[in-house]
C-alpha cells in the first residue's frame, strides 16, 4: 500500500559544487522503504550512501528528483518544514555524538525535549526507563567520558529512539565498536525498532550486520546496483 511507504525516492540526482567544478554523486536513485522495515544500505566509500542518508534526513536540500518523507515532498520544502520533519526522525551517528557535558540520562532527555509539551518529570522517567531497557540503569548519571564505547552507542541509540521516531537513520553505528558491542547495538536497534514500529535505514560497510537486515540495497558510483529482500 502506498501509505505504508515511509520513504519514496524517485529520480534523485545530486551534485556537489556547480559548473565545471561540480561533481554529480547520485544518479537517478529510486527507492521506497516500507513502514517497520530494517534496510541496510551498502556500498564502497564514495558511492553516495551518506549523501542519500542526509537527503532523506532533511539535512541537505534536494536538488533534482523527488524525495517524499512521511508523505511530505522535500524538494523545495521550507527550512521550517525540514526542521519539523527532522523531529520525527532518529539519527544515530558513527561517533556517538553525545553531549560531553550531559549525563547519559540528560542526553536521552534531549531526544524527548525536542518535542514540545513533554513535562519535565515525564521526560525524566521515560529516559530513565529507556536506559534501563538497554541495561544502563546504573549508568544514568554517568557522563559520556565515563562510559565505554558500546555503552555510549547504546545511549545514542536510546536517544534516537526514545521519541518514537517514524524513521531511524543510522550511519555506520558499529564502525567504532568491537564485534560483541556491534552485535549488541544492532540487535538493540532492531529489537526496539520492531517493538515501536519504526523504520530503519542503516548505512554500513559492516558485513556482520547483513544477516539482520530485511532488505539490502547496494550503491555503487551513485547508482543503486542491487536490491535484495531478506526474511
Amino acid at each position: 500500500m502506498e501509505d505504508e511507504n515511509i520513504i519514496e525516492v524517485e529520480g534523485l540526482n545530486h551534485c556537489f559544487g556547480s559548473g565545471e567544478a561540480g561533481k554529480q554523486v547520485l544518479f537517478d536513485i529510486s527507492l521506497t522503504l516500507r513502514r517497520g522495515s530494517f534496510t541496510v544500505l551498502m556500498g564502497p566509500s564514495g558511492s553516495g550512501k551518506t549523501t542519500v542518508l542526509t537527503l532523506i534526513g532533511c539535512l541537505r536540500g534536494v536538488q533534482d528528483g523527488s524525495v517524499r518523507l512521511l508523505g511530505h515532498e522535500l524538494n523545495g520544502a521550507a527550512e521550517a518544514r525540514l526542521v519539523a520533519l527532522r523531529r520525527r526522525l532518529g539519527f544515530i551517528f558513527q561517533a556517538h555524538n553525545l553531549h560531553e557535558s550531559l549525563t547519559a540520562l540528560q542526553n536521552v532527555i534531549m531526544g524527548l525535549q525536542v518535542h514540545p509539551g513533554i513535562a519535565d518529570t515525564v521526560a525524566q522517567q521515560a529516559a530513565a526507563h529507556a536506559l534501563g531497557l538497554v541495561g544502563l540503569a546504573d549508568r544514568t548519571h554517568y557522563l559520556p567520558a565515563n562510559l565505554s564505547g558500546g555503552q555510549k552507542q547504546r545511549v545514542a541509540v536510546v536517544r534516537a529512539l526514545v521519541g518514537n521516531p517514524a524513521l531511524v537513520l543510522a550511519d555506520e553505528p558499529t564502525a567504532a565498536l568491537d564485534k560483541d558491542s556491534a552485535a549488541e547495538v544492532v540487535d538493540l536497534l532492531k529489537r526496539m525498532g520492531r517493538a515501536r514500529g519504526m523504520t530503519t535505514l542503516l548505512v554500513t560497510h559492516d558485513s556482520r550486520i547483513l544477516d539482520r537486515a530485511d532488505r539490502i540495497l547496494t550503491l555503487e558510483d551513485g547508482r543503486i546496483v542491487g536490491s535484495e529482500e531478506r526474511g
Binding site: 519539523a84 527532522r86 526522525l89 525536542v114
Partner: peptide, 15 residues
Amino acid sequence: DHLREYATFKAMGYG
C-alpha cells in the same frame, strides 16, 4: 567547542 554537539541537536530538530 560544541559545534559538533550543536550540529547533532540541529539534526534532531532543534531550531
